[in-house]
Amino acid sequence: MKIFITSKGRELDSKVDPRFGRAEYYIIYDTETAEFRAEENPFKKGQTAVGISLAQRVIEEGAQVAISGNFGPNAFEVLKAAEIRLFRAGGEMKVKEAVDAFLRGELPEMDSATPREVADRLEKELK
């Protein structure tokens, strides 16, 4: 299985980049071979819709799982439509630590209850 992780550097020792669309790099980690490859995020300096652009890249890379600090609302929607599972790596986690935590089932999964939906629900309750 291929995992897509946003990263601040090119190594497994690099920290997870908490920004999704504007992450510095991304790392593709293959859980079967334990091999990895780092790429510079070509969209990090983009004008608009960087989240959507990188989400499309996740699909093209054939990853089944994506790990980052935050997923913007649009990136979230694209990745969910492509049936990719999303996990949040908080704090100052390194890429390798995040992968290990994911494999141990310790990373929180971002499911359909996104903060936006929680917000919408609250709004309805207010009215």
């Binding site: 959507i52 652009s53 649009n74 492509a82």
Partner: peptide, 19 residues
């Protein structure tokens, strides 16, 4: 990037009108 096409087998299209 207002349009996203998810290729087969998923075959979905997403449109972001605000973009």
């Amino acid at each position: 990037k207002a349009l996203v096409i998810i290729p087969p087998p998923a075959k979905k299209d997403l449109f972001f009108p605000e973009l």
